[in-house]
């Protein structure tokens, strides 16, 4: 009688498909992080009826976010990674100037619908002081149809 012993079972995880999928996940998240607009701070943008505005273009731009506080006041101004107090807008002028010299062509102004115009005008004046007559884009919510 020939007896065959049980073959020694080796439990090895197959690493190849795991590495495959892991790399795909990495690529996926890298692509997603490129798409997400990191310049935009979440806020309730104005949405006028029948807006005659045009879709914002994906080009080199400076995005100035006027972060709202309660009662139409402003917490701070955010430009990229810079956070500026509303009382020191000279800093905003300097940052916008640097970004425009670095290749950005337009300045996008994002402000909450409830923000008082008085504060927004201060920011517009600070941008105007850059001196190179940049074109300002006043951002509104595009999902208003």
């Amino acid at each position: 009688m020939e007896w065959r012993g049980k073959p020694s079972s080796s439990i090895n995880a197959n690493l190849t498909p795991m590495i495959d999928v892991t790399f795909l996940l990495i690529v996926f998240f890298v692509v997603v992080s490129q798409i997400v607009d990191r310049d935009a701070v979440s806020m309730d943008l104005p949405s006028p009826e029948n807006a005659a505005a045009s879709v914002a273009e994906m080009q080199e731009r400076v995005v100035v976010n006027i972060v709202p506080s309660d009662g139409g006041a402003v917490q701070r101004v955010v430009v990229g990674r810079h956070e500026i107090s509303i009382d020191s807008l000279d800093e905003l002028t300097a940052i916008v100037k640097t970004r425009l010299q670095g290749g950005a062509s337009e300045v996008y102004l994002r402000a909450d619908r409830a923000t008082r115009y008085m504060v927004i005008h201060k920011a517009i004046e600070a941008i105007r002081k850059v001196g190179t007559t940049p074109r300002l884009q006043l951002v509104i919510d595009g999902d208003n149809e």
Binding site: A40, A52, S54, V55, Y108, R135, L138, V139, I140, D141
Partner: peptide, 9 residues
């Protein structure tokens, strides 16, 4: 999902 009005300064 955003639009903008251009304004010359």
């Amino acid at each position: 999902a955003e639009e903008s009005f251009p304004m010359d300064l």
